[in-house]
Simulated scan of single mutants.
Amino acid sequence: MINEKIWHEKLHRHIGQYFSIDKILYQKKNKYHDIVIFQNSIMGRIMVIDDVLQTTEKDEFIYHEMLTHVPIFYHGFIKKVLIVGGGDGGILREICRHNSIENITMVEIDINVIELCKKFFPRHSNNAYKDPRLKIVIDNGLNFIKTTKEKFDLIISDSTDPIGCGNDLFLSEFYLHCKNHLFENGIFVGQNGIFFLQKNNINQSYKKLKKYFNDVSFYQATIPSYYGGAMMFSWGTDNMDLRKINATNLEQRIKNTQLSFNYYNSKIHISSFYLPEYIVNTLNKS
């Protein structure tokens, strides 16, 4: 329970970040998560799950735009999407902006997260939960992907960090079933943490994904509220040509949608796959 005026993130043992608490808006532990929502004068409302920062009002758009639009525009013909996690609604909001997408399934283990974010973070979902294309399934993400008979063009794993029930979404078994439930040319992407502080986790994801996909990589975005450097997103597909689209054609795809963004653009998109040498060297040794 939080009783102080300062919240300290406990994801990393010896270092971390602090946020002042202007007001605690919600604080409760259920069978899945220990959830705290509080107000901060700079970042707005902040949601913390199991002592790890999940999302803020101020900079959520960076994370959600990059995890959504990079695979959608690289693919070019996404019709059916699976979101695993994502109960705050930000990924759903960005997907729903694409009129060409016909079917959206969201699998969230804790319906309480969805209801809390509708109440305390309404701009995250921006009424996307009312979209008729959406089907919500309350289930463990691993269990769903093991048992479903459906296939998808895009699977987005918007998970918590690999602790507690979130660990299931970083298992080799999860990646295998995601691969088996993608259509031809389908794409898997997922949140994969901060390389500088979570190198071992990201190396393990890379090794596991390489077992199942022909084209495996990571791309990145700098998100102020996540401590320790650039956020890494995993990428997996069997179509080696998807990432070969040139900048002109990519820009045309974006223009054809007539969408505008706060962070994402074609140059950010392409450059996000160019990783620092210390990351490249580490992955090459995996």
Rank of each mutant, 00 (worst) to 15 (best):
K207S: 08
D139P: 14
D51W: 06
N201E: 13
C117M: 05
K135F: 10
E65D: 13
T55L: 11
K58W: 01
S217P: 03
S260E: 15
Y227V: 10
T282Y: 05
E102A: 12
T222C: 08
Y129I: 08
K207W: 09
M106A: 02
L176Y: 07
I155Y: 04
N203M: 13
T68Q: 06
N265S: 10
S205Q: 13
I37C: 03
I223A: 02
I202R: 01
G164V: 11
I91R: 00
P122R: 05
E102N: 15
K151P: 03
S260K: 10
S205K: 07
N140L: 11
L11P: 04
K58R: 10
N180W: 11
T237V: 00
G89C: 14
S225G: 02
K135S: 14
Y278A: 04
P162W: 03
I109G: 05
G166P: 06
G89A: 12
K267Q: 15
V70W: 15
I95N: 00
E150N: 15
H64T: 00
T257Q: 10
G16V: 02
N185G: 04
I187R: 01
T148C: 05
Y175V: 03
I163P: 09
Y226I: 06
K207Q: 11
I202A: 01
N112T: 15
F218L: 08
I6G: 01
T160I: 09
C178N: 13
K29P: 05
K10M: 12
K130Y: 14
N192V: 06
L242E: 06
I101K: 07
K135A: 11
G186M: 01
E94Y: 14
Q204T: 12
S271W: 14
E150Q: 14
Y32P: 10
N200F: 12
K58N: 03
G90M: 06
H14G: 04
K211C: 09
I270H: 04
V137T: 13
N112H: 08
E57W: 09
L283P: 12
N192H: 11
F77E: 15
I78E: 01
G89K: 13
L67I: 15
F144A: 03
N265P: 10
N126V: 03
V36S: 05
E115H: 13
K5N: 08
S272K: 02
C96K: 05
K118N: 08
T160F: 06
R13E: 13
I83A: 00
N185E: 13
I83N: 00
I46T: 02
G141L: 07
I163C: 08
K10I: 14
K207Y: 12
I37D: 04
E251N: 12
C165F: 13
L154K: 06
N192E: 14
E184T: 10
G164M: 09
H33Q: 15
D110A: 09
R45D: 02
Q191I: 06
L169K: 00
D34V: 04
Q252G: 00
K146I: 09
L67F: 09
K119Q: 07
Y74S: 12
G86S: 11
